[in-house]
């Protein structure tokens, strides 16, 4: 027995993303994971950046060209958005761990608050970094 799959009747396995009704709670939970995976790739690239800086001026300049290209800037902006969202939504998990804000209305309001604050902070920091 090396698989959990139900072979006799093909029932869907949890998490039931296909049949789950989209709500702000579920969407933000999925987005939290999605940004987490996205940030994992960002962490790998930042390791490469540190490595290239350590290797000398030539590799550093080569890397700088990529970062300053339009694609590089776009990706960096998305990473900024992702890290801010992941951090702010993480605060919600901390509060829930301490049994704060667990009621349905407050879960919805805090979710909405996280979305708005993410957009505002991303724009402000984006301007500070690229303007």
């Amino acid at each position: 027995m090396d698989t959990i799959e139900n072979k006799t009747n093909k029932r869907p396995l949890s998490p039931h993303l296909q049949i789950y009704k989209p709500q702000i709670t579920s969407i933000l939970s999925i987005f939290h994971r999605f940004t987490g995976v996205f940030l994992a790739f960002g962490l790998l690239l930042s390791v490469i950046f540190v490595f290239f800086t350590a290797m000398g001026e030539e590799t550093y300049k080569w890397w700088n060209c990529i970062v300053n290209s339009l694609v590089g800037k776009g990706l960096l902006f998305l990473w900024l958005l992702a890290i801010i969202f992941h951090a702010l939504n993480g605060v919600r998990y901390f509060l829930w761990d301490n049994d704060i804000g667990m009621s349905i209305p407050s879960v919805k309001w805090s979710g909405l608050f996280v979305c708005v604050l993410t957009l505002v902070l991303t724009c402000v920091l984006g301007i500070l970094i690229w303007m």
Binding site: D2, T3, I4, E5, G36, V37, L39, A40, L43
Partner: peptide
């Protein structure tokens, strides 16, 4: 990297059903 490792492990456990 510790946080990444733990987080990805949870995701893998949720979506990869073949234990091997």
């Amino acid at each position: 990297f510790l946080h990444l490792k733990l987080g990805l492990q949870i995701i893998i456990e949720d979506y990869v059903h073949n234990l091997k």
